[in-house]
């Protein structure tokens, strides 16, 4: 017999203090409390983390691959946002 799946949760782990939480994978859990605990057991068996977030996979809204040109290409010609765009006279330091 097939029972219903427990919902899917996305897991984010802070590897050490000073870093952001990063997505490490997903797992199934019946509710948030168990999801945090399962994440601890599944994703930090080798001291990989100091803090865990879990988010129901269904709660994540994402940009669509179809919109990726409209979303991300316009950033491509804003070269002046990058420091290498600017010329610095020889000998000038700490700029």
């Amino acid at each position: 017999m097939t029972t219903r799946d427990w919902p899917l949760w996305e897991v984010f782990v802070r590897a050490r203090r000073g870093l952001s939480h990063s997505h490490v994978g997903s797992l199934h859990a019946p509710d948030a409390e168990m999801a945090v605990r399962n994440a601890r057991d599944v994703f930090t068996r080798r001291e990989e983390g100091v803090s865990i977030w879990v988010v129901p996979a269904a709660a994540i809204s994402a940009s669509s691959p179809d919109e990726k040109d409209a979303f991300f290409d316009p950033a491509a010609d804003k070269v002046y946002r990058h420091p290498t765009f600017y010329s610095v006279p020889a000998g000038v330091e700490h700029l």
Partner: peptide, 16 residues
């Protein structure tokens, strides 16, 4: 690994 099979959270259809 998010959202890919939950159409309710996907605002735009994937390309045909």
């Amino acid at each position: 690994m998010y959202g890919n099979h939950d159409t309710t959270s996907v605002p735009v259809e994937a390309p045909a």
